[in-house]
């Protein structure tokens, strides 16, 4: 495959995600694989680039949640074919880290969490997804069980975010090294600081970047 052809295919993958064209993404992935593309490249320089562009469009209020959900469908359609081909090739994965993720008890809104999860999935994290309406102690238990570097908590409403405060406290007591990120519509940087969270992300692409930095900082130590 010529470098030009490879670029063309990668761009088609990214564009397919951005324009939420599930079928086009699947077709392009299949073509690209037939022509011998490196599956890692297809994921990280194709699909993920597209998702990052979606994140940018969201920040610029070009895209909103429905658009992101459809982009996510397109990305997962491609990832479903490519991911099995990545296995056993860990040396090439760009980030290695584990994250426990869930929506706190009392909150059944998991769209934000699912979008963040997708970014983490795509970037090569191992995600332990606890789902939504998750009792506080489950986060603590899962973190200890999996020894995940990061715990990411989400809440969609002012009336549900307060539960995060106790989870942060309990996790920090049991494992001071675990990094905790919080996010969701009502959460602010001020609240994150006040509750002792290590990271606050106003949206999914920031969440991913923060997480990558956190894992990197842990590995440096």
């Amino acid at each position: 495959m010529t470098p030009e052809r490879e670029q063309e295919l990668l761009k088609a993958l990214a564009d397919g995600v951005v324009n939420f064209e599930e079928e086009a993404v699947v077709a392009t992935v299949n073509t690209a694989l037939e022509e011998g593309i490196d599956p890692h490249k297809a994921v990280f320089d194709g699909l993920v680039v597209g998702m990052q562009e979606c994140g940018r469009l969201y920040e610029e209020q070009e895209y909103f949640v429905p658009e992101l959900l459809m982009c996510a469908d397109a990305m997962y359609a491609g990832l479903g074919i490519l991911r099995p081909l990545l296995k056993g090739d860990e040396s090439k994965s760009r980030v290695k880290g584990q994250v426990v993720m869930g929506v706190v008890q009392g909150d059944v809104h998991d769209i934000g969490k699912n979008i963040v999860k997708m970014m983490f999935d795509a970037a090569g994290f191992t995600v332990h997804d606890l789902g939504r309406d998750v009792p506080l102690e489950n986060f603590v238990e899962e973190q200890l069980k999996t020894e995940s570097e990061i715990v990411a908590l989400s809440a969609m409403m002012t009336t549900t975010m307060v539960g995060m405060k106790d989870i942060i406290k309990q996790i920090k007591e049991k494992n001071p090294k675990a990094k905790i990120m919080i996010g969701g519509a009502p959460v602010t940087e001020e609240i994150a600081n006040k509750w002792g969270a290590d990271g606050y992300a106003p949206n999914a692409s920031n969440a991913l970047q923060d997480a990558i930095n956190m894992v990197a900082s842990l590995k440096d130590i």
Binding site: Q105, D107, P135, L136, V162, G163, D166
Partner: peptide, 9 residues
């Protein structure tokens, strides 16, 4: 549940 939570569906 001990903590204060609003009902959900």
């Amino acid at each position: 549940v001990n903590q204060l939570l609003y009902p959900t569906i």
